[in-house]
């Protein structure tokens, strides 16, 4: 029974990892940009959520109403102001610039909030759980998983059924020809980053109500996000959810065997998938 429990917890944890990954996957797909600061932006969102709950007295989940648009705005400004200038044939400049951004965010958070671990309190929701026979599932992890499925589903739908999704795919296929259609790629990239950071806003708050966070934990979130994307296969959003779940399950099963093995088991699962299927489990069919 403890194994089934670990499995279920892992699946639910995978939802959070998929949320870490979705924003990364989106911008890599649209503009081939690897955002090294992604994990720190998740942590930044958690702190923005913390400040919102303190200043406005809002419930952390309601704080999303403030944090999501703030992060989206930050994404658009960041893309138009800095990141667009780094994009080109060379992959190195965006890597270096987002690495620099990562350092800046960490230091700014240290300066503003200190290194003390923080957590957002969701009151009764914290301990609420549903019992299924002898299993018990936390309401919060269930909610997180449901949100992850909803976010991935909406993104997928947006990608394949809206004008914006069409623009994303067109720009990803061929930037010059997309410009000929009247699409300003700089604006399209700005929108993509806004969307990516909006998801980061959701992920950051869900992270902050689930565990303690401090300014230094962004790097590990970035790695989890990367691993979920790669396991699932680049360019496939549902694959990213599957990747998150596999990573989550590997971690909880690993922890069940030996509490120290949680992270190791996750990385091992990632390496095994990479060795067997270098392009991930569900790579996109075309291209």
């Amino acid at each position: 029974m403890i194994w089934i429990n670990a499995l279920l917890q892992g699946i639910l944890l995978g939802g959070l990892y998929a949320l870490f990954a979705a924003g990364l996957s989106l911008i890599f797909g649209v503009m081939r940009l690897v955002n090294i600061a992604h994990g720190d932006l998740i942590v930044l969102a958690a702190y923005l959520g913390l400040s919102t709950t303190i200043v406005l007295g809002l419930h952390p989940l309601l704080a999303m109403i403030i944090v999501i648009p703030l992060m989206a705005l930050l994404g658009y400004i960041l893309q138009r102001g800095i990141l667009n200038q780094t994009l080109g044939d060379d992959l190195l400049p965006p890597l270096l610039v987002t690495f620099g951004l990562s350092v800046i965010i960490q230091n700014a958070l240290l300066e503003g909030y200190s290194a003390d671990p923080q957590k957002m309190n969701v009151g009764a929701l914290e301990t609420a759980s549903l019992s299924l026979g002898s299993l018990s599932l936390g309401v919060l992890p269930l909610l997180t998983f449901a949100i992850a499925v909803a976010v991935i589903g909406s993104l997928h739908w947006m990608f394949y059924h809206t004008a914006l999704g069409r623009a994303f795919r067109a720009v990803s296929d061929n930037q010059d020809i997309a410009q000929l259609m009247g699409l300003n790629k700089r604006h399209v990239f700005g929108i993509a980053m806004a969307l990516s950071l909006a998801i980061t806003g959701i992920a950051g708050i869900l992270l902050g109500v689930r565990t303690n966070f401090d300014p230094s934990i962004g790097g590990a979130r970035l790695i989890f996000g990367f691993e979920a994307v790669i396991i699932g296969g680049l360019g496939n959003l549902w694959g990213t959810l599957a990747g998150g779940v596999i990573l989550g399950v590997a971690q909880t099963i690993g922890a069940q065997i030996n509490p120290g093995w949680q992270l190791l088991a996750g990385h091992l699962a990632f390496l095994i998938v990479l060795a067997v299927r270098p392009r991930g489990l569900f790579p996109r069919m075309t291209g």
């Binding site: 067109a170 010059d176 020809i177 410009q179 000929l180 259609m181 300003n184």
Partner: peptide
């Protein structure tokens, strides 16, 4: 003007080699 601005002016190019969007 950039290509997207020229497009709004009413000039369209059928590029050499067709260059369709493969994901569309």
């Amino acid at each position: 003007l950039r290509a997207d601005q020229v497009a709004f002016e009413g000039i369209a190019l059928v590029p050499e080699g067709r260059q369709l969007f493969a994901s569309l």
